[in-house]
């Protein structure tokens, strides 16, 4: 039997959406290969998550132990390795998230399994999987070829597959904690919430968002002027925040905020996956960028392919006129 394992991901009392996405992908792969989907849930008193997983999986392996109350890679890796060695799945899917990247590479070493990360497409026809992932910030794709193995391990990009319908009613099997003793050398302490600044961009009606393309901090006022005319708040990409041009709480994207404005005006932002994931809820997206191939144009409703330092001042003036 070609069992496909999906590692369920949860945090602060919530089963994360990416788990449903991965179980949907696993269901599609299982159809190709004639296999079954098994969700693996490590947690403490999270029976409701086990029930939820069972709606998308043929089986749920649920380890209920206080050591798994909060995520700790040093506990996850040996526990998963042992479960996988006992149960012998053919393929293991782990989300390419801050949990997944903390676990999967070490697990691959432990299992000595063919391993790749952040796949965006996958097929499982015959014995061997084939996968596609992206390089150079999404500017090109690459096809991964795996060597023969009993078990393969991949991490899956968030939102690579939309979560499907809950069509299954798998059996929840409680299994004994395979981990003997403590997590080696690392202890969870606490979560610290990100500070909320003077502007909460998740609530902004309009956003002018800046990226690496604005080149220097001294160009921020030019963008602020555009934002002011529009009555918009200023936000930015990770690059703009890391460079110190904007405070951390103005960052849009996976590691920043998810925003849902009526207007999102992206200036000098290339549109890396990590960024555009944060703007899926925006109504109208406009992009200004010199490179016609910039991925941001695939997410925008309107685009201007030109030098932003020409367009932004001109646009600011025109907006003043039409106001």
């Amino acid at each position: 039997m070609h069992d496909i394992f999906v590692l369920a991901e949860h945090r602060q009392g919530e089963l994360r959406e990416v788990t449903l996405e991965m179980m949907t992908l696993a269901g599609q792969l299982a159809e190709q290969s004639g296999g079954k989907v098994t969700a693996v849930l490590l947690g403490s008193g999270v029976d409701e998550f086990a029930q939820k997983c069972a709606q998308y999986a043929d089986r749920v392996l649920y380890v209920d132990d206080p050591i798994f109350e909060n995520f700790n890679a040093m506990a996850y890796v040996p526990a998963l390795a042992q479960l996988i060695e006992e149960q012998k799945p053919h393929l293991v899917l782990i989300a390419h998230t801050t949990q997944g990247v903390d676990v999967a590479p070490a697990l691959a070493v432990e299992l000595d399994a063919p391993f790749t990360t952040e796949i965006i497409e996958m097929s499982l026809e015959g014995e061997k999987p084939a996968a596609t992932r992206q390089y150079y910030g999404g500017k090109i794709n690459g096809r991964i070829e795996f060597k023969d193995s009993d078990v393969y391990l991949v991490t899956v990009r968030e939102a690579a597959v939309p979560a499907g319908e809950a069509t299954k009613s798998g059996e929840v099997q409680k299994v004994e904690n395979p981990l003997k003793g403590e997590a080696g050398g690392r202890r969870f302490l606490e979560y610290v919430e990100a500070a909320v600044g003077e502007v909460d961009i998740t609530q902004s009606e309009k956003l002018v968002s800046v990226g690496r393309g604005i080149k220097e901090e001294k160009n921020v006022p030019l963008m602020e002027e555009l934002a002011k005319v529009l009555g918009a708040d200023l936000s930015g990409s990770r690059a703009a925040v890391d460079a110190g041009w904007l405070p951390t709480d103005r960052q849009v994207g996976i590691s920043g905020k998810t925003v849902k404005p009526k207007l999102y005006l992206a200036v000098g932002i290339s549109g890396a996956f990590q960024h555009v994931t944060g703007i899926k809820g925006a109504d109208v997206v406009v992009a200004i960028n010199k490179d016609p191939n910039a991925p941001i144009f695939q997410y925008a409703d309107y685009g201007i392919v030109d030098d932003l330092f020409k367009v932004v001042p001109a646009l600011t003036e025109k907006l003043k006129e039409v106001k």
Binding site: K139, F146, F297, D301
Partner: peptide, 18 residues
């Protein structure tokens, strides 16, 4: 055991009105 075998240009989704 998991080698990048071939690069390709990503398929372009529906573009913005330019």
């Amino acid at each position: 055991k998991a080698v990048m075998a071939q690069y390709s240009v990503p398929e372009v989704g529906e573009l913005a009105e330019i």
